[in-house]
Protein backbone atom coordinates (compact mmCIF):
# COMPACT_ATOMS: atom_id res chain seq x y z
CA UNK A 1 0.00 0.00 0.00
CA UNK A 2 1.13 3.54 -0.74
CA UNK A 3 0.47 6.53 1.48
CA UNK A 4 1.01 10.18 0.64
CA UNK A 5 1.40 12.89 3.25
CA UNK A 6 1.28 16.61 2.63
CA UNK A 7 4.61 17.90 3.91
CA UNK A 8 3.51 21.23 5.26
CA UNK A 9 6.24 23.73 5.99
CA UNK A 10 5.58 26.21 8.75
CA UNK A 11 8.02 28.95 9.75
CA UNK A 12 10.66 27.35 7.57
CA UNK A 13 10.41 24.02 9.38
CA UNK A 14 8.51 20.82 8.76
CA UNK A 15 5.16 21.05 10.54
CA UNK A 16 5.81 19.25 13.82
CA UNK A 17 2.58 17.25 13.71
CA UNK A 18 3.75 15.61 10.49
CA UNK A 19 6.38 13.59 12.30
CA UNK A 20 3.72 12.21 14.62
CA UNK A 21 1.59 11.23 11.64
CA UNK A 22 4.53 9.47 10.01
CA UNK A 23 5.18 7.51 13.18
CA UNK A 24 1.54 6.51 13.46
CA UNK A 25 1.32 5.53 9.81
CA UNK A 26 4.39 3.31 9.94
CA UNK A 27 2.97 1.66 13.06
CA UNK A 28 -0.47 0.99 11.59
CA UNK A 29 0.49 0.24 8.00
CA UNK A 30 3.57 -1.88 8.41
CA UNK A 31 5.27 -2.66 5.16
CA UNK A 32 3.61 0.19 3.30
CA UNK A 33 5.49 2.85 1.36
CA UNK A 34 5.13 6.37 2.63
CA UNK A 35 5.60 9.28 0.25
CA UNK A 36 5.47 12.99 0.94
CA UNK A 37 4.80 16.12 -1.08
CA UNK A 38 6.45 19.44 -0.35
CA UNK A 39 5.27 22.56 -2.14
CA UNK A 40 6.88 25.96 -1.91
CA UNK A 41 8.83 28.69 -3.61
CA UNK A 42 12.10 27.20 -2.39
CA UNK A 43 12.56 23.70 -1.09
CA UNK A 44 15.15 23.05 1.55
CA UNK A 45 17.13 19.79 1.56
CA UNK A 46 16.86 19.61 5.31
CA UNK A 47 13.11 19.10 5.08
CA UNK A 48 13.37 16.23 2.64
CA UNK A 49 16.20 14.75 4.69
CA UNK A 50 14.15 14.85 7.85
CA UNK A 51 11.19 13.24 6.13
CA UNK A 52 13.52 10.46 4.98
CA UNK A 53 14.76 9.97 8.50
CA UNK A 54 11.17 9.54 9.64
CA UNK A 55 10.49 6.81 7.10
CA UNK A 56 9.46 8.62 3.93
CA UNK A 57 10.74 6.75 0.86
CA UNK A 58 10.10 9.37 -1.74
CA UNK A 59 9.41 13.09 -1.72
CA UNK A 60 7.63 14.86 -4.56
CA UNK A 61 8.56 18.51 -4.71
CA UNK A 62 6.96 21.38 -6.55
CA UNK A 63 8.89 24.60 -6.57
CA UNK A 64 7.20 27.73 -7.91
CA UNK A 65 6.88 31.38 -6.87
CA UNK A 66 3.09 30.93 -6.81
CA UNK A 67 3.53 28.46 -3.95
CA UNK A 68 5.32 30.89 -1.67
CA UNK A 69 2.24 31.07 0.58
CA UNK A 70 -0.54 28.55 1.01
CA UNK A 71 -3.46 29.32 -1.29
CA UNK A 72 -6.12 26.70 -1.97
CA UNK A 73 -6.09 26.64 -5.76
CA UNK A 74 -2.39 26.33 -6.60
CA UNK A 75 -1.90 23.89 -3.73
CA UNK A 76 -4.87 21.74 -4.74
CA UNK A 77 -3.70 21.75 -8.34
CA UNK A 78 -0.21 20.62 -7.35
CA UNK A 79 -1.39 17.95 -4.94
CA UNK A 80 -3.83 16.50 -7.49
CA UNK A 81 -0.97 16.11 -9.94
CA UNK A 82 1.18 14.40 -7.31
CA UNK A 83 -1.65 12.07 -6.29
CA UNK A 84 -1.94 11.01 -9.90
CA UNK A 85 1.75 10.15 -9.97
CA UNK A 86 1.98 8.52 -6.55
CA UNK A 87 -1.27 6.52 -6.72
CA UNK A 88 -1.72 6.38 -2.95
CA UNK A 89 -4.49 4.58 -1.08
CA UNK A 90 -4.42 7.12 1.73
CA UNK A 91 -3.61 10.84 1.64
CA UNK A 92 -3.00 12.57 4.96
CA UNK A 93 -2.12 16.00 6.27
CA UNK A 94 -1.70 17.49 9.71
CA UNK A 95 -4.96 19.08 10.84
CA UNK A 96 -3.63 22.60 10.73
CA UNK A 97 -5.70 25.40 9.26
CA UNK A 98 -4.12 24.78 5.86
CA UNK A 99 -4.16 20.99 6.12
CA UNK A 100 -7.87 21.17 6.88
CA UNK A 101 -8.40 23.42 3.90
CA UNK A 102 -6.52 21.15 1.52
CA UNK A 103 -7.74 17.64 2.34
CA UNK A 104 -11.51 18.10 1.79
CA UNK A 105 -10.82 19.80 -1.54
CA UNK A 106 -8.64 16.94 -2.74
CA UNK A 107 -11.35 14.52 -1.62
CA UNK A 108 -13.98 16.39 -3.64
CA UNK A 109 -11.90 15.96 -6.77
CA UNK A 110 -11.88 12.23 -6.14
CA UNK A 111 -15.61 12.15 -5.45
CA UNK A 112 -15.26 11.03 -1.86
CA UNK A 113 -15.65 12.43 1.61
CA UNK A 114 -12.88 12.76 4.16
CA UNK A 115 -12.22 12.40 7.87
CA UNK A 116 -10.78 15.47 9.62
CA UNK A 117 -9.03 15.69 12.98
CA UNK A 118 -8.62 12.00 13.57
CA UNK A 119 -7.02 10.98 16.84
CA UNK A 120 -6.54 7.33 15.92
CA UNK A 121 -6.36 5.12 12.87
CA UNK A 122 -7.02 1.40 13.08
CA UNK A 123 -7.52 -1.47 10.69
CA UNK A 124 -10.44 -3.84 10.56
CA UNK A 125 -10.08 -6.40 7.81
CA UNK A 126 -9.72 -4.41 4.62
CA UNK A 127 -11.12 -1.25 6.17
CA UNK A 128 -9.21 1.71 7.50
CA UNK A 129 -11.08 3.12 10.47
CA UNK A 130 -10.81 6.77 11.40
CA UNK A 131 -11.53 7.78 14.99
CA UNK A 132 -12.79 11.31 15.42
CA UNK A 133 -14.03 12.96 18.59
CA UNK A 134 -17.27 14.86 18.07
CA UNK A 135 -19.42 17.26 20.00
CA UNK A 136 -16.70 18.90 22.11
CA UNK A 137 -14.98 15.56 22.58
CA UNK A 138 -17.93 13.98 24.31
CA UNK A 139 -18.35 11.16 21.84
CA UNK A 140 -16.08 9.21 19.52
CA UNK A 141 -17.21 8.60 15.99
CA UNK A 142 -15.54 5.86 14.02
CA UNK A 143 -15.92 6.12 10.28
CA UNK A 144 -14.66 4.51 7.14
CA UNK A 145 -14.43 6.01 3.72
CA UNK A 146 -15.72 4.28 0.59
CA UNK A 147 -13.47 5.04 -2.31
CA UNK A 148 -10.22 4.08 -3.92
CA UNK A 149 -8.33 6.84 -2.14
CA UNK A 150 -9.06 7.85 1.46
CA UNK A 151 -8.38 11.38 2.67
CA UNK A 152 -7.81 12.41 6.28
CA UNK A 153 -6.16 14.89 8.61
CA UNK A 154 -4.97 14.24 12.13
CA UNK A 155 -5.87 16.41 15.05
CA UNK A 156 -2.86 18.47 16.02
CA UNK A 157 -1.10 16.96 19.00
CA UNK A 158 -2.76 13.54 18.57
CA UNK A 159 0.29 11.53 17.54
CA UNK A 160 3.82 11.39 18.86
CA UNK A 161 6.94 11.37 16.77
CA UNK A 162 9.44 8.56 16.79
CA UNK A 163 12.28 9.70 19.05
CA UNK A 164 14.81 7.44 17.31
CA UNK A 165 14.10 7.61 13.61
CA UNK A 166 16.45 5.58 11.48
CA UNK A 167 15.32 6.15 7.89
CA UNK A 168 17.61 7.14 5.07
CA UNK A 169 17.65 9.87 2.46
CA UNK A 170 14.53 9.68 0.31
CA UNK A 171 14.27 9.64 -3.45
CA UNK A 172 13.30 13.07 -4.75
CA UNK A 173 11.03 13.67 -7.72
CA UNK A 174 10.63 17.20 -8.95
CA UNK A 175 7.23 17.94 -10.43
CA UNK A 176 6.66 20.87 -12.77
CA UNK A 177 3.32 22.61 -12.61
CA UNK A 178 2.25 25.77 -14.36
CA UNK A 179 -0.23 28.15 -12.89
CA UNK A 180 -2.49 30.70 -14.55
CA UNK A 181 -4.34 33.81 -13.38
CA UNK A 182 -7.39 31.78 -12.45
CA UNK A 183 -5.35 29.81 -9.93
CA UNK A 184 -4.37 33.01 -8.18
CA UNK A 185 -7.74 34.78 -7.67
CA UNK A 186 -7.37 34.64 -3.92
CA UNK A 187 -4.37 36.80 -3.08
CA UNK A 188 -2.08 36.53 -0.13
CA UNK A 189 -1.60 39.87 1.64
CA UNK A 190 0.38 39.08 4.78
CA UNK A 191 0.70 36.88 7.82
CA UNK A 192 0.16 38.84 10.99
CA UNK A 193 2.35 36.86 13.31
CA UNK A 194 1.55 36.88 16.97
CA UNK A 195 4.56 38.25 18.78
CA UNK A 196 5.94 35.53 21.02
CA UNK A 197 7.41 37.54 23.85
CA UNK A 198 6.72 35.08 26.66
CA UNK A 199 7.55 31.40 26.46
CA UNK A 200 5.03 29.33 28.38
CA UNK A 201 6.60 26.00 27.50
CA UNK A 202 8.51 25.65 30.75
CA UNK A 203 5.93 27.20 33.06
CA UNK A 204 5.15 24.92 36.00
CA UNK A 205 1.85 26.57 36.78
CA UNK A 206 -0.47 28.46 34.48
CA UNK A 207 -3.55 30.46 35.37
CA UNK A 208 -5.41 30.66 32.08
CA UNK A 209 -8.43 32.77 31.32
CA UNK A 210 -11.16 32.52 28.72
CA UNK A 211 -14.05 34.67 27.58
CA UNK A 212 -15.55 34.25 31.02
CA UNK A 213 -12.90 36.66 32.34
CA UNK A 214 -15.13 39.32 30.85
CA UNK A 215 -12.68 42.09 30.06
CA UNK A 216 -9.17 43.40 29.84
CA UNK A 217 -8.99 44.75 33.37
CA UNK A 218 -10.13 41.48 34.93
CA UNK A 219 -7.02 39.76 33.66
CA UNK A 220 -5.23 41.51 36.51
CA UNK A 221 -6.94 39.03 38.86
CA UNK A 222 -5.32 36.16 36.99
CA UNK A 223 -1.97 37.94 36.90
CA UNK A 224 -2.07 38.51 40.65
CA UNK A 225 -2.78 34.87 41.38
CA UNK A 226 -0.16 33.65 38.92
CA UNK A 227 2.41 35.95 40.43
CA UNK A 228 1.65 34.78 43.95
CA UNK A 229 2.03 31.16 42.87
CA UNK A 230 5.15 31.76 40.82
CA UNK A 231 3.41 30.86 37.59
CA UNK A 232 2.43 32.38 34.29
CA UNK A 233 -0.87 33.42 32.80
CA UNK A 234 -2.42 32.04 29.64
CA UNK A 235 -5.53 32.67 27.57
CA UNK A 236 -7.84 31.35 24.89
CA UNK A 237 -7.98 32.77 21.40
CA UNK A 238 -11.30 34.36 22.32
CA UNK A 239 -9.34 36.66 24.68
CA UNK A 240 -6.37 37.42 22.45
CA UNK A 241 -8.74 38.12 19.55
CA UNK A 242 -10.36 40.94 21.52
CA UNK A 243 -6.98 42.11 22.83
CA UNK A 244 -7.84 41.57 26.49
CA UNK A 245 -4.37 40.12 26.73
CA UNK A 246 -1.30 40.00 24.47
CA UNK A 247 -1.35 37.35 21.74
CA UNK A 248 1.74 35.69 23.14
CA UNK A 249 -0.44 34.19 25.89
CA UNK A 250 -2.70 32.27 23.53
CA UNK A 251 -2.64 28.55 24.27
CA UNK A 252 -3.80 25.82 21.90
CA UNK A 253 -3.61 24.67 18.31
CA UNK A 254 -2.87 28.15 17.03
CA UNK A 255 -1.13 29.38 20.15
CA UNK A 256 1.52 27.92 22.41
CA UNK A 257 1.64 24.32 23.62
CA UNK A 258 2.10 23.99 27.36
CA UNK A 259 2.70 21.19 29.85
CA UNK A 260 2.61 22.62 33.35
CA UNK A 261 2.20 20.68 36.56
CA UNK A 262 -0.90 22.71 37.33
CA UNK A 263 -3.29 24.33 34.87
CA UNK A 264 -6.01 26.54 36.29
CA UNK A 265 -8.61 27.20 33.60
CA UNK A 266 -10.92 30.06 34.52
CA UNK A 267 -13.87 30.96 32.32
CA UNK A 268 -12.74 28.59 29.56
CA UNK A 269 -15.33 26.34 27.92
CA UNK A 270 -12.83 23.73 26.74
CA UNK A 271 -12.82 23.85 22.95
CA UNK A 272 -10.70 21.03 21.48
CA UNK A 273 -8.56 23.62 19.70
CA UNK A 274 -7.63 25.07 23.06
CA UNK A 275 -7.21 21.81 24.95
CA UNK A 276 -5.04 20.25 22.25
CA UNK A 277 -2.31 22.61 23.43
CA UNK A 278 -2.53 21.69 27.11
CA UNK A 279 -0.96 18.70 28.81
CA UNK A 280 -1.13 19.24 32.55
CA UNK A 281 -0.56 16.92 35.49
CA UNK A 282 -3.29 18.60 37.50
CA UNK A 283 -6.18 20.41 35.90
CA UNK A 284 -8.34 22.81 37.89
CA UNK A 285 -11.37 24.45 36.28
CA UNK A 286 -13.53 27.32 37.41
CA UNK A 287 -16.67 27.81 35.42
CA UNK A 288 -20.19 29.10 35.99
CA UNK A 289 -21.65 26.45 33.70
CA UNK A 290 -21.83 22.97 35.14
CA UNK A 291 -22.17 21.56 31.64
CA UNK A 292 -18.98 23.16 30.28
CA UNK A 293 -16.91 20.50 28.48
CA UNK A 294 -13.78 21.58 30.33
CA UNK A 295 -15.08 20.04 33.54
CA UNK A 296 -14.70 16.60 32.04
CA UNK A 297 -10.97 17.15 31.91
CA UNK A 298 -10.69 18.76 35.30
CA UNK A 299 -9.28 16.92 38.28
CA UNK A 300 -10.78 19.64 40.43
CA UNK A 301 -13.48 22.11 39.65
CA UNK A 302 -15.52 24.87 41.17
CA UNK A 303 -18.85 25.85 39.67
CA UNK A 304 -18.77 29.54 40.29
CA UNK A 305 -17.85 33.02 39.15
CA UNK A 306 -14.13 33.31 38.58
CA UNK A 307 -14.23 36.98 39.52
CA UNK A 308 -15.23 35.89 43.01
CA UNK A 309 -13.40 32.58 43.29
CA UNK A 310 -9.95 33.62 42.09
CA UNK A 311 -9.54 36.58 44.47
CA UNK A 312 -10.72 34.37 47.34
CA UNK A 313 -8.24 31.70 46.36
CA UNK A 314 -5.48 34.27 46.31
CA UNK A 315 -6.49 35.67 49.69
CA UNK A 316 -6.47 32.22 51.29
CA UNK A 317 -3.11 31.32 49.79
CA UNK A 318 -1.40 34.51 50.90
Amino acid sequence: MKILVYGQIRDNLLEENLLGILNKLSEVFQGSEIYAAILGSQINNEWTGELGKHGVKKVYTVEAPELENYLSRPYVKSMLEIIEKAEPTLVMAAGTVFGEDLIPRLAVHHGVSCAQRVVNITLEGEDILFHTPVRDDQAMKITKIEGVIKFATSRTGAFFENENPSGSAPEIEKVEISFDADDMVVKHVEVRKAERTVNLKDAKLIVAGGRGVGGKDNFQILKDLAELLGGEIGATRACTDVHWIEETYEIGQTGQSVSPDIYIAAGISGAPQHLSGVKAKTFIAINTDEGAPILKYADYGIIGDLLVILPLLKKKLE
Partner: peptide, 12 residues
Protein backbone atom coordinates in the same frame (compact mmCIF):
# COMPACT_ATOMS: atom_id res chain seq x y z
CA UNK B 1 -8.48 34.11 9.15
CA UNK B 2 -7.24 31.90 11.96
CA UNK B 3 -3.69 30.67 11.50
CA UNK B 4 -1.26 28.82 13.70
CA UNK B 5 0.86 31.53 15.30
CA UNK B 6 -1.26 34.47 14.21
CA UNK B 7 -3.65 35.53 11.51
CA UNK B 8 -3.43 35.22 7.74
CA UNK B 9 -4.71 38.03 5.54
CA UNK B 10 -5.96 37.41 1.99
CA UNK B 11 -8.15 39.16 -0.54
CA UNK B 12 -11.05 37.46 -2.29
Amino acid sequence: HVLEGGRNIVTI
